[in-house]
C-alpha cells in the first residue's frame, strides 16, 4: 500500500512550491561485493547464473565479472549439474529442467569462498489478463494496471511483476501476495510509481507475471519499501535480505513465468 506515497506526492505537488534539484553528495567509500544472479523458470532451459561485482555509486564504468567460478545447481529430485561458463560472468545449464514444486540448490565456488542458495518453484498460477482502468485525477488520466489471476485457496502465494513500457524495462519492484485477500481473482492494481514514467493512450505495456517463493518476495518487497519515499523518506534503506549465504548480494529465484501485453486505451 503506497498511500503515503500518493498523499505526499499529490500534496506537495499540488499545493506547495516544492522543487527538486540534483545535488552533489559525499559518498562513503564502498566495499565491492560479489553479486550472484540465478534464475530457473518453468520455461525451457538453458537457465543462467551470472556472477559480477558491485561498483561505487558514482562510477559509470562496467561491472567486473567473475568467469572462473564453479557453479552447480541441484534439485530435490536428485538431479545435479555443473554449469558451463559462457564468458562475461555467465554460466548456463545444459540438461536441468525447471519443474514446479521442486527446490533448487545453487552452489558457487569463487575466490576460495563458497556461496549457496535455495529456492522453490511454486505451483504456477495462470495469468489470465491485464485489466486497465482509467480515472481522471486533477485533469490528468491516471492508469491503474490490474493483473488478473485466480489466486488459489492455499495461502502463501507471492507474485512478482516485471513491467515494460513500449519495450523499455521499468526499474520498479512490483510485488503482490495473498496476505489480505486469499483465494480470489486479483482485483488490486499494481502500485506503479508514476513519478518518472507516464502512460499515454496507445502505449504498449508488457507485464511478466512470476510466481515466486517467500524469500524472493521478501527481497523484492524490501526493495519496494525502500523506494517508497513518503514524507521524510521511506523505510531506512539497507541491503535487502536475500537467499544467498556467505554475504553475497543478489538473488537466486526459481519461478514460473507468463507474459501478457496490452495497449493503453
Amino acid at each position: 500500500m503506497k498511500m503515503k506515497n500518493i498523499v505526499s506526492i499529490l500534496f506537495i505537488g499540488l499545493l506547495f512550491t516544492g522543487c527538486e534539484k540534483t545535488i552533489d553528495l559525499d559518498y562513503k567509500s564502498n566495499q565491492s561485493r560479489i553479486i550472484i544472479q540465478g534464475n530457473i523458470t518453468n520455461g525451457a532451459g538453458p537457465y543462467y547464473v551470472k556472477i559480477t561485482k558491485s561498483i561505487p555509486l558514482k562510477d559509470t564504468g562496467s561491472y567486473p565479472v567473475i568467469d572462473d567460478a564453479v557453479v552447480t545447481i541441484s534439485d530435490d529430485a536428485g538431479n545435479s549439474e555443473v554449469l558451463t561458463a559462457g564468458g562475461n560472468g555467465t554460466y548456463h545449464t545444459n540438461a536441468l529442467a525447471g519443474v514446479e514444486g521442486r527446490t533448487y540448490t545453487l552452489t558457487v565456488q569463487a575466490g576460495n569462498q563458497t556461496y549457496s542458495a535455495q529456492s522453490t518453484m511454486p505451483k504456477r498460477v495462470p495469468f489470465d489478463s491485464i485489466r486497465v482502468e482509467t480515472h481522471i485525477v486533477t485533469g490528468e488520466t491516471e492508469y491503474s494496471i490490474i493483473p488478473v489471476y485466480p489466486d488459489p485457496l492455499t495461502k502463501g502465494n507471492n507474485y512478482r511483476f516485471v513491467l515494460w513500457l513500449n519495450n523499455k524495462l521499468i526499474n520498479q519492484h512490483l510485488i503482490q501476495n495473498d496476505e489480505v485477500r486469499n483465494g480470489v481473482a486479483n482485483s488490486v492494481r499494481l502500485e506503479i510509481n508514476d513519478d518518472d514514467i507516464e502512460f499515454k493512450p496507445g502505449d504498449s505495456v508488457t507485464l511478466q507475471m512470476q510466481c515466486i517463493d517467500k524469500n524472493v518476495a521478501l527481497y523484492y518487497r524490501t526493495l519496494a519499501l525502500i523506494s517508497d519515499s513518503g514524507p521524510g523518506g521511506g523505510t531506512t534503506p539497507n541491503n535487502p535480505p536475500n537467499n544467498i549465504s556467505n554475504g553475497a548480494l543478489g538473488l537466486f529465484s526459481a519461478y514460473t513465468v507468463e507474459t501478457k501485453s496490452v495497449v493503453m486505451p
Binding site: K28, Q31, R33, L57, Y63, N171, L223, P237
Partner: peptide, 28 residues
C-alpha cells in the same frame, strides 16, 4: 542521520543500490 547507497549492481537488468553502515550519512 540517513543511509545513502554506497554502491550499485545489476540484477536481472535492473540497477540495485548497495548499502553500508546504517545511518552513517547525513542530510545536508
Amino acid at each position: 542521520a540517513v543511509t545513502f547507497p554506497t554502491g550499485k549492481y545489476v540484477l536481472n537488468d535492473m540497477v540495485i543500490y548497495q548499502y553500508g553502515t546504517r545511518n552513517a550519512d547525513r542530510m545536508p
